[in-house]
Design a protein around this nucleic acid. Structure first.
Lengths: 344, 344
DNA sequence: CTGAAAGCGCTTACAG
DNA sequence: CTGAAAGCGCTTACAG
């Protein structure tokens, strides 16, 4: 078994093998209509016989139409299943159109994100799907745009930046969830979890407050405690909340993963979620379905959102002068067990 | 706000700006020791001032040391959290070494996988982490290797192929799980889920049979029914099993996601997993911890496995003549609630 | 220590 | 319909 790291076959060799010029081979490969079918076939045959592999790097270097054709995906992390769902939606769409993706996970660090973006620029991506880390500055986005690379912001919006965006209606979602809890008879509803640096957090808070208002219940900052964004923090959060003078009877969680963490913490204190305490999450991750009690949530249709983000990027790539798109997808309240029965 | 898609700055311009030749600029950029510190600084300054971005494609085109430096990751899908965990481990490691990754998901289709590989070849990846789709032929692997691109097989082994591999000890894992169930007093233990085309399936089955043997229990093919690999199939599977003359009292599942699906199906039939029926899974996905009853499992240390796969690929890349590595990680039995108490 | 020149594998006007 | 030639942005011997 020889270590025969063969040199890559070049188009030039293909052309020679097919008995045509390099120009003709290139045009045939690219489906240029001025090359007759018969010639194309000769070229294809040579490609097959020689095991030729196109060199995208060389092609995009020479070609004026910038970009390698690959699209970049930057996501904060994959630990939260919501991002995974989003990524699944993105990948499915990308597979349909046979596009290649560069993936970077920033684990929520702006510094890592900067490095990631620089790398993707070096690889000459043709478009970027950016799930920006908390605290991302708009300069970062502008830098990418200055290279003529379209970027679609997912979920995180920079209001004064001319950039395509797709996200969900956080205010509506927060409102619907809270309203449901109020309608079930709850008066002490906590809003837990989430990073306050995030646009989405403020939207969901706003919806929450709006619903409270409508029901004539005063907003109590005690019920919106500071907390980190991962599940491990949930026990402390729950302990804090249920040691209050007047503890909550319902929780609206910034996202599902925190909601599940909170329910686990509740259970371990002997409090039964869905019975003693109502819980509604946000996102709609698969785990919410298997958990007991199953999690009521505001679905953000994560896979669909991912797919739509790709579509938006594709439209922008094929039509750079299209007006800036700002897609706000509707949310939907999905009632399962954790929101419980009405209280009287 | 002008659409100023500026032309990319080239190294040539950087050189001119710094007052050095293109050669010097290139060498400074690449940290060539023959360039004195002072000259390097001039170049760095020019890079900064001009907002220069390195063109990796052009560099790797010219450079003899093939490859763009990016590493490819091909995974079957992200719907099963095990792959997500693996990917998290991979990404964390890649972030440490500041490497870029191309991600492809095949959704278990060999056809899509072929396309994915071709694309990655076109992008001149420097290495590939391949979680091969069921039914992948060894020719596919050989094709990549012929281009001198190192590939690390994860989980799926091609015994007669000279290729680095990392996976877990499936036989041991299957043995440990089954032995545990036997020790708890079970005599009718089903082995459910998994794709029979997979090497890993046969390993786990072998361990299962071995344990049965040791306990003098005859292998009953009825308890290893055909089934698909996703959770949706679980209800049918459970119905089938529990309609048998002599139904199982314990389930050893090929993986955690099926185990959870099975437990959900059990619950909906009024059978209490962890009490009426013992369940042990394989993989160790986070959802197993939040599920009720919490899932006993054979951990495959997915994140660690991902990290180790990257390390293996890196060693291979820096040392192509290193002997073929065949890393089999030990598994570990993690006992939680679903495996239940001893039966008498 | 530094520079001029060739060339990586393609595409693209420009002729014919 | 087809080909010779220039050039994309780099790296790398080779001189000096």
């Amino acid at each position: 078994m020889k270590k025969s790291t063969q040199k890559r076959v070049t188009l030039k060799q293909v052309a020679a093998h097919a008995g045509v010029s390099l120009t003709t081979a290139s045009m045939a490969l690219n489906g240029n209509p001025s090359i007759p079918e018969a010639t194309c076939q000769k070229v294809y045959k040579a490609i097959e016989e020689l095991g030729y592999v196109y060199d995208r790097g060389a092609a995009s270097l020479r070609s004026s139409t910038a970009g390698s054709g690959a699209i970049g995906i930057i996501v904060t992390d994959l630990v939260n299943p919501f991002y995974t769902e989003l990524l699944i939606g993105i990948q499915q769409k990308l597979n349909e159109t046979e596009q290649t993706s560069l993936l970077g996970t920033t684990f929520d660090s702006c510094e890592v994100q900067d490095r990631m973006i620089s790398m993707m620029l070096e690889y000459r991506i043709s478009g970027l799907l950016l799930f920006a880390a908390p605290g991302t500055s708009s300069e970062v986005i502008q830098r990418i745009q200055r290279f003529g690379i379209p970027v679609v912001l997912i979920n995180r919006l920079f209001p004064d930046l001319p950039c395509d965006y797709i996200g969900v209606d956080n205010v509506q979602g927060g409102y619907d969830a809270t309203r449901q809890l109020l309608a079930l008879g709850h008066k002490r509803i906590a809003f837990i979890g989430g990073n306050r640096q995030l646009y989405t957090w403020h939207g969901r808070l706003q919806g929450y407050q709006q619903a409270l208002n409508e029901f004539g219940i005063e907003f109590d900052p005690e019920l919106t405690p500071e907390s980190l964004c991962n599940r491990d923090e949930a026990p402390n959060l729950i302990e804090h909340l249920f040691n209050l003078q007047d503890p909550p009877t319902a929780l609206f969680s910034y996202n599902d993963t925190i909601a599940i963490g909170a329910m686990m913490a509740l259970k371990s204190r002997g409090i039964v979620p869905g019975k003693d305490v109502a819980v509604i999450g946000f996102d709609d991750i698969p785990e919410g379905l298997s958990f007991s009690p199953s999690l009521s949530t505001v679905t953000a249709h994560p896979r669909l959102q991912g797919a739509k983000a790709v579509e938006l990027l594709q439209s922008r790539m094929s039509n750079p002068s299209m007006p800036i798109q700002n897609i706000v997808m509707p949310t939907e309240l999905v009632l399962r067990e954790s929101s419980g029965e009405p209280r009287y």
